[in-house]
């Protein structure tokens, strides 16, 4: 398991939207994700609601349980506490915003139970 975050979460990283527009990671808005997914043939945005946040045996990690999509499928992910998720209408959020800001310089809100995160699924999945 990786103990570092991917480079694209670092403040200032250049992100290309589906229409070709370039934005910095910290400037992304909910609409950017929604519009990019609309253009995509394969991917669609799902709403994933945070149901539980539990500590993990892995140091500095948490286990987040999401309720995904209209069928409310239960999905668990283990991530580092500083891993940022994009919350609808709120923006980047992590379990430990101070650490995210310290490591990535990315401003974050606190990720809490009930938050609705942007996630992806395949359009063809039925």
């Amino acid at each position: 398991p990786s103990s570092t975050l991917p480079p694209y979460f670092m403040k200032g990283s250049i992100i290309q939207l589906a229409d070709g527009e370039l934005k910095r990671v910290e400037d992304l808005r909910t609409e950017d994700f929604l519009q990019s997914a609309e253009v995509s043939r394969e991917l669609k945005i799902d709403s994933s609601t945070v149901e539980r946040i539990d500590s993990s045996k892995t140091p500095d990690a948490v286990i987040i349980q999401f309720s995904v999509g209209e069928h409310k499928a239960q999905v668990c992910v283990e991530v580092l506490v500083e891993y940022p998720f994009f919350v609808f209408g709120q923006g980047w959020s992590s379990c430990c915003p101070d650490r995210t800001t310290q490591l990535l310089a990315l401003s974050c809100a606190k990720l809490s139970v009930g938050d609705v995160c942007i996630s992806l699924t395949l359009k063809s999945l039925r």
Partner: peptide, 19 residues
């Protein structure tokens, strides 16, 4: 300067299909 695609920022949370 590296450019990253938007979808790399979003977790892929695929539920296992049971039907």
């Amino acid at each position: 300067v590296p450019v990253f695609p938007w979808h790399s920022l979003v977790p892929f949370l695929a539920p296992t299909q049971s039907d």
